[in-house]
Simulated assay, not measured.
Amino acid sequence: MSTLEEQIDVDIPIAAAWERLHRAETYPRFVEGVREARSEDGHRTRLDVDVGGRVQEFEAEITDRGKEHMMEWQTTSGPDLAGTFSLLPIDQEHTRVQARIEYDPGTVKEAFGGPKGFAQATAIERLVRDDLEHFKELVERER
Score class of each variant (00 low, 15 high):
Glu32Phe: 01
His43Lys: 09
Ser77Ile: 12
Asp41Val: 12
Met1Ser: 07
Thr63Ile: 07
Pro28Phe: 05
Val97Glu: 00
Ser86Asn: 05
Gly114Val: 15
Asp130Cys: 03
Thr95His: 00
Trp18Ser: 03
Glu140Pro: 02
Arg100Leu: 15
Thr84Phe: 04
Gln74Tyr: 07
Arg20Thr: 07
Asp130His: 14
Gln74Ile: 10
Lys116Val: 15
Glu68Lys: 09
Val108Trp: 13
Ser86Gln: 13
Gln7Glu: 11
Trp18Lys: 03
Ala60Glu: 15
Glu57Lys: 05
Ala16Ile: 14
Lys136Tyr: 00
Gly113Gln: 04
Ile124Gln: 06
Val108Leu: 13
Leu138Ala: 02
Leu88His: 06
Leu81Ser: 03
Ile14Tyr: 02
Leu132Gln: 09
Thr122Arg: 09
Glu142Leu: 15
Glu142Trp: 14
Arg29Leu: 08
Gly114Arg: 10
Gln120Arg: 10
Pro28Met: 03
Glu57Thr: 14
Arg23Gln: 09
Pro89Cys: 05
Leu21Gln: 05
Phe58Pro: 00
Arg96Asn: 01
Val139Asn: 03
Thr45Gly: 02
Ser2Pro: 01
Pro115Arg: 10
Leu81Ala: 04
Lys109Gln: 07
Val128Thr: 10
Arg54Trp: 04
Glu68Tyr: 03
Gly114Ile: 14
Val97His: 00
Lys136Thr: 00
Asp41Trp: 13
Thr122Asp: 04
Gly53Gln: 11
Arg54Gln: 10
Val128Gly: 01
Leu21Val: 07
Ala99His: 03
Gln56Thr: 12
Asp64Pro: 01
Val10Met: 04
Arg126Gly: 05
Ala60Cys: 04
Gly78Phe: 08
